[in-house]
């Protein structure tokens, strides 16, 4: 039962990471290249979603539409609320990475005749996203844990299932919460390993990594 619930956490995790990734990338690009108006809007966006506690946002998104007679599924409300929260953090990671890329890269792309959008898509982002993997890995762990917040809107994720077990068999409570903890340990470990592998796979040959040199001497 808990393992089945864990799948729901993973499902939520993947969809909110996707929302956070897409929105976060767009926000970061606008912050750096969006010019005055769009740039300011992007900063406001980041500020809003990094300031509002995820739980508050979750309540707003889940119960807000109800006021107008609309209903929103638990899964969708959690994806939107937690996804936007994450997009705030992810945009910060991506913005740092974009800004660390030498301005000569953009200049060379423009000199070839690429439009700004084309240059961002073909030259800037492929490099910036590679650089973002370590920071993103961190955000991944945080968001992993945040999936349990969907508990409060009645999404049948891990914590809620553990709670249900406790209600029925009080003796098993500790055991089930411990199991939940262990499942999170395993999920986070697996995710971080996968990201580590991705980082290795997409490493640009010849570029030095801090603290390590290919020749093996310092």
């Amino acid at each position: 039962m808990l393992l089945k619930a864990a799948l729901l956490n993973v499902e939520l995790l993947l969809s909110l990471l996707a929302v956070g990734f897409v929105v976060g990338t767009i926000v970061a690009v606008l912050q750096v290249y969006g010019g005055r108006v769009l740039g300011v809007l992007a900063f406001v966006f980041e500020w809003v979603f990094r300031s509002i506690p995820p739980l508050v946002l979750l309540f707003l998104v889940y119960f807000g539409p109800e006021r107008f007679g609309l209903s929103i599924s638990r899964f969708l409300s959690a994806t939107i609320a937690l996804g936007l929260c994450s997009s705030g953090y992810q945009s910060q990671i991506f913005r740092g990475a974009i800004q660390s890329i030498s301005s000569g890269q953009m200049m060379a792309a423009r000199a070839l005749g690429m439009s700004r959008t084309r240059a961002i898509a073909s030259v800037i982002l492929p490099q910036a996203l590679r650089l973002s993997i370590p920071g993103w890995s961190n955000e991944f762990s945080g968001v992993m844990k945040d999936t349990t917040l969907a508990y409060v809107v009645g999404y049948n994720e891990l914590l809620r299932s553990a709670r249900a077990i406790m209600d029925r068999h009080y003796d098993a409570a500790m055991l089930s919460f411990l199991t939940v903890a262990i499942i999170f340990l395993v999920l986070t470990y697996t995710g971080n390993r996968a990201l580590g592998w991705l980082e290795e796979r997409t490493r640009i040959p010849g570029l030095q990594v801090a603290g390590w040199s290919e020749e093996g001497h310092s």
């Binding site: 000569g104 890269q105 060379a108 000199a111 070839l112 005749g113 492929p126 570029l207």
Partner: peptide
């Protein structure tokens, strides 16, 4: 301008090759 730039080569002091 993009089309005009495409027909004007530019070679930079510090190369600016696309690193990836």
């Amino acid at each position: 301008i993009n089309r005009l730039r495409a027909s004007i080569g530019f070679v930079f002091q510090d190369f600016n090759l696309f690193a990836h």
